[in-house]
Amino acid sequence: MTDSSKRDMGVKYAADRIAIERPRLREALDFLVDILAVQRELAREVVSPALEPTLPRVREAARRVGGGRSLLDLVDLPELPPSAWEMIALKILEVIRRHRRDLESHVAIVEGAIKSKRLDIRGLAESLLSGGGELVERESERLGVEAPLMETLSLWLAQTLLRSLSSAIAGEIGFEGWREGRCPVCGSHTRVGYMRGEGRKLYLKCSVCGTEWPFQRIKCPFCGNEDGQTLGFYTLGEDRRFRLYFCERCGRYWKVVDEEEAGGQIPAELYDVWTSHLDAIAKRKGLR
């Protein structure tokens, strides 16, 4: 067995572990495990080879990350050939098709648009990063498909590229100059983190590209508030594995897995889903 299939297996069984604890997450987990495996495969087979030529430039830029400027603030999103984008989009649609039979007719429409080259795939991927949802909205309206389907597609398209990028430059970025709550690679905000090691050092994990970076424990990743009086966290009774942090100044929350308590059985890729019950609690408490 190859290392990558071992890794996929590890994620799959970690998902089983979560599902045993919270059976209601079963479907979401299966979906996630599937897309993670497909994205890894695409990264290996399609994205990495295509990225190869641009890597020196990107690596160089990676070393300059800091002072509030993320990698994508310094370089453009690398180019992929249209055939690669098409392949990625089709594979992602396959995953959606496997898990959302109810969307079959919509999936078929998008698939048709891709095959007849009537969909701006790269545009979709970029729109997610630029934060503007207009293209997604416009395209879903034009094709007559559900907007969430288009959103998911664009997120996963961007993710496939960015995950490759993040792992290609892993080790190049010095995180010393990065004190932001935003991702040093793609610039996205995240609400997932973990504490690791004896001193329970805090790391944030980008939910888009997977980059992990150290972050100050008493600081809001959203507004930068460092006032301990207005920052705090909840735990769930006896269960010390998860912490729901909140900032009273901006009303945002973020979720932290205490790995010293949780053990190392669940890979960080699944932390967001694993902690999804905290989202519900946060909502009840009026946090955003």
Binding site: M1, Y13, D16
Partner: peptide, 14 residues
Amino acid sequence: GCRACQVACHVWNG
């Protein structure tokens, strides 16, 4: 003889 079961056993049981 792919030994996926062996790996799976290690992965699940740590």
